[in-house]
């Protein structure tokens, strides 16, 4: 058998030797941090207007993570490109000729992709939190406050899982354009719209993005079906399902 560490090293070389990796990951960081910082700054300066209908307690952590939706978009693109560029260039056949164990190849790819995404997501989450808090002035919270550390780590895990989910879907569709065409509308149109429609709403609450975002909440929201840990598990299940689906398609299909 081909050695797994060797395949990991090879996948690492693949991922770091193209520019799109750097760009999409840098964009994830910049957009999440930048938008979070801007919203935190604006909130601090206009806190009186915002605070009027304060039925739920003000969530400084959530405010710092206001940009996570756009960061999510960037990291989805990263996940799609990292897998999909092999299909768009025909390189997949070169990869599979070098590593005919298809499941092993996709596993190595997911490990490298996941590790890199997690590293970037952790840095992004913690910096976004601390910069946000520094701009929130008197309204800031600390990382030691109840549930805050969990929410920050949750943000990092959320970005990582969504990235791997996108990678799995891309392997299932074996086409990066198609994968972007499915994932972006799903996360940015379908899921938000469905979660506002009565009845369908119940279903939309088990989508990976809604589930994953429960991990970011410091305070329990009214009418929420489940808590952060259940959200983590649901999002993880989606991610694993997408990766297993991708591996099955890769294994059974002619390359």
């Amino acid at each position: 058998m081909t050695s797994f560490p060797a395949i990991l090293q090879s996948e690492w070389t693949k991922i770091r030797s193209v520019r799109s990796t750097v760009w999409t990951l840098a964009l994830t960081f910049v957009v999440t941090l930048g938008l979070g910082a801007l919203l935190s700054f604006l909130t601090d300066n206009n806190f009186e207007q915002f605070g009027e209908n304060g039925r739920t307690p003000f969530d400084p952590t959530g405010t710092a993570f206001s940009g996570i939706m756009l960061g999510e978009l960037a990291i989805i693109v990263f996940g799609v490109l990292a897998v999909g560029n092999e299909y768009s260039t025909g390189m997949i056949r070169v990869s599979l000729a070098a590593v005919p164990q298809r499941g092993t190849l996709l596993t190595a790819k997911a490990v490298v992709l996941g590790a890199l995404a997690l590293a970037v997501a952790l840095v992004t989450a913690f910096l976004t939190f601390f910069v946000g808090q520094s701009l929130l002035g008197d309204h800031a919270t600390t990382v030691g406050a109840p549930n805050v550390l969990r929410a920050v780590l949750g943000a990092a895990l959320y970005l990582t899982m969504i990235c791997l989910f996108a990678a799995g879907i891309t392997a299932m569709l074996h086409n990066q354009t198609l994968a972007l065409g499915v994932l972006v509308p799903f996360f940015f149109l379908l899921s938000p719209i469905l979660s506002a429609v009565p009845k369908v709403k119940t279903l939309a609450r088990y989508f990976p993005d809604y589930a994953g975002q429960r991990m970011l909440l410091v305070y329990q929201q009214h009418g929420q079906p489940y808590g952060p840990w259940a959200g983590f598990l649901i999002c993880l299940a989606w991610t694993l399902a997408a990766l297993v689906g991708g591996a099955l398609v890769l294994k059974n299909r002619d390359a």
Partner: peptide, 14 residues
Amino acid sequence: AVHPGRTARDHLRW
């Protein structure tokens, strides 16, 4: 069958 953004050497390296 090469990523257009990867150098020849990096392609052979992986």
